[in-house]
Design a protein around this nucleic acid. Structure first.
Length: 477
RNA sequence: CGGGGCGUAGCGCAGUUUGGUAGCGCGCCUGCUUCGGGAGCAGGAGGCCGUGGGUUCAAAUCCCGCCGCUCCGACCA
């Protein structure tokens, strides 16, 4: 990283950002990229705990909303995979195949799931008999495999992807719409906890999920001025139900196709957190999901060493009992300065420094990772203060990122205005022809229109149609 | 998928041009002194030079293939 002092939001230079990102994910011990298969990295303990905590947040929402966790097999037979035409077209080029077992060729080739629709839906046909079986709401957290880009990147562009996918079946299209609203509410809460403000955009026809009726992409803005999709919510209507013959018997005894939705997220959430909140000192983790929320650093010397360590143990005990994930960096032969840098590189939200001064005054020195401010409190207040600071930090991180997003969304009324690395709000008549022209001439993607909709007065940038909608144009990460 | 750069100790690199004893810094181990923002000294361990083949008396070094990393573009949920 050199000695350059750059805040994350100054890293608009993508080359600089890439170097910084690659360095920081390994220095913070999230991941080890030295595994010799491209696009497949090792989750180190610290990174895996972070992912686990994020997944736990997701799980608690799934429980709350009546989803049940399942785990389907990794391998899918070729003939099941090929039932939904658009879906195959979307994924055909990027599936890994298993064609051999031992020395024998398999009768039916098997593929590693690139997503699990084609694994699950043949079974949904068996599970769903009547309207009493609906809604069916399940989810799983598994790895999916996609042989896509050559330009892989830890967490954001992997070939083995740690994936969350919720799948639902409903009686009516409106029930499915309601499900999508529920998904977006969950997303809203997760966005707060992960400090990832975002745009919920209804994707263009040519950018929707293969096989979907429509897709809502959830995008966060990286310091480079590019949007990273962190979640996808899809309305399938009966597209897959027809391909997999998933029908239920309604109260009148009629057999009807179910309406389906999916909601997907991945380790990209981590990529977004790192990119959006990291700085020249390392990563910065949201308190809600940080593997270590509080790190106590004893600053010992001479005879008072054991007293200071006892003092630290007491603080740790109280914070731990209050439910915080807390540790003490009691390594010997490592000086405090190194411990500070280490804590910062790993993005630990709260640091508590304890030396002779604190010992004498029965106080604590509390340092927040995001802005680095130090505060002194009485040691009795430790639990209360840490709780306050964690809450404040979550809010501050969110609003800082929200400000960045707002400042980098600009209206463009002419193609020639579109030159910077920003999110442009433009007029678009909605036609594919105009959309593709705009994408081509600006070298950017139309990521869609706000799911919630919005008032907009403006002309289509391509054809000049007065009744244009607001669309969002940006480069994709 | 196209194009560039790279692969030498855990990490960062020199050595490759011109073939001939594998080096430096950080980290690691031992000991002593240190300790409020990356400690100092002394001693020590650690290498199939990515990998497979070729040229040669001799290859980290030259040639070819493959694997991986990285950057630009294409593709992409």
């Amino acid at each position: 990283m050199g000695n350059e002092k750059k805040e994350p939001y100054e890293m608009v230079d993508t080359q600089y950002y890439s170097e910084w990102y690659n360095q920081v994910i390994e220095s913070s011990e999230l991941t080890d990229k030295r595994y010799p298969v491209k696009g497949m990295n090792i989750w180190r303990p610290y990174g895996w705990k972070l992912m686990w905590n994020i997944d736990s947040e997701t799980r608690s929402h799934m429980r709350r909303t009546g989803h049940h966790e399942v785990k389907f097999p990794l391998l899918i037979p070729e003939d099941e995979f090929q039932k939904e035409a658009d879906h195959i077209k979307g994924f055909d080029d990027e599936v890994y195949w298993v064609t051999r077992a031992g020395r024998n060729e398999l009768d039916i080739p098997l593929l590693l799931r690139p997503t699990s629709e084609t694994a699950m839906y043949p079974v949904f046909d068996l599970w769903v008999r009547s309207h009493a079986d609906l809604p069916l709401k399940i989810f799983q957290m598994v790895d999916v495999f996609r042989y896509e880009t050559k330009q892989t990147r830890a967490f954001t562009r992997m070939r083995e992807i740690h994936f969350f996918e919720a799948h639902t079946c409903h009686e009516t299209s409106e029930d499915a719409e309601e499900q999508i609203r529920e998904d977006l509410e969950i997303m809203e809460d997760l966005s707060r906890k992960l400090c990832l403000p975002n745009l919920e955009l209804k994707r263009t026809e040519w950018d929707k999920f293969p096989g979907a009726e429509y897709t809502v992409g959830v995008d966060s803005l990286l310091p480079t001025g590019r949007l990273l999709q962190i979640a996808g919510i899809h309305q399938y209507k009966t597209n897959f139900a027809q391909a997999y013959d998933i029908r239920y018997e309604d109260v009148e005894g009629e057999h009807r196709f179910v309406h389906q939705t999916t909601y997907g997220m991945s380790a990209r959430l981590i990529g977004a957190i790192i990119g959006i909140h990291g700085d020249e000192k390392g990563i910065v983790l949201p308190p809600a999901v940080a593997p270590i929320q509080v790190r106590i650093i004893p600053i010992t010397y001479g005879e008072k060493e054991s007293e200071i360590l006892d003092y630290c143990d007491d603080l740790k005990e109280r914070l731990g009992s209050a439910g915080f994930r807390v540790d003490i960096d009691d390594r010997e032969d490592v000086r405090p300065g190194s411990k500070f840098y280490d804590s910062e590189m790993k993005g630990i939200p709260i640091r508590v420094d304890i030396g002779s001064q604190e010992l004498e005054q029965k106080s604590i020195t509390l340092v927040r990772r995001d802005h680095g401010d130090k505060k002194e409190y009485g040691h009795q207040e430790v639990v209360e203060r840490v709780r306050e600071e964690c809450e404040a930090m979550e809010e501050d991180m969110y609003s800082k990122a929200e400000d960045f997003l707002q400042k980098n969304m600009v209206d463009a009324e002419d193609l020639s205005d579109i030159v910077e690395e920003k999110v442009y709000r433009i007029g678009w008549c909605g036609s594919r022809g105009c959309g593709e022209n705009i994408e081509e001439s600006t070298d950017r993607h139309i990521l869609g229109t706000l799911y919630q909709g919005e008032e907009y007065q403006g002309k289509c940038l391509n054809c000049g149609d007065e009744n244009a909608d607001a669309a969002y144009l940006c480069k994709k990460e």
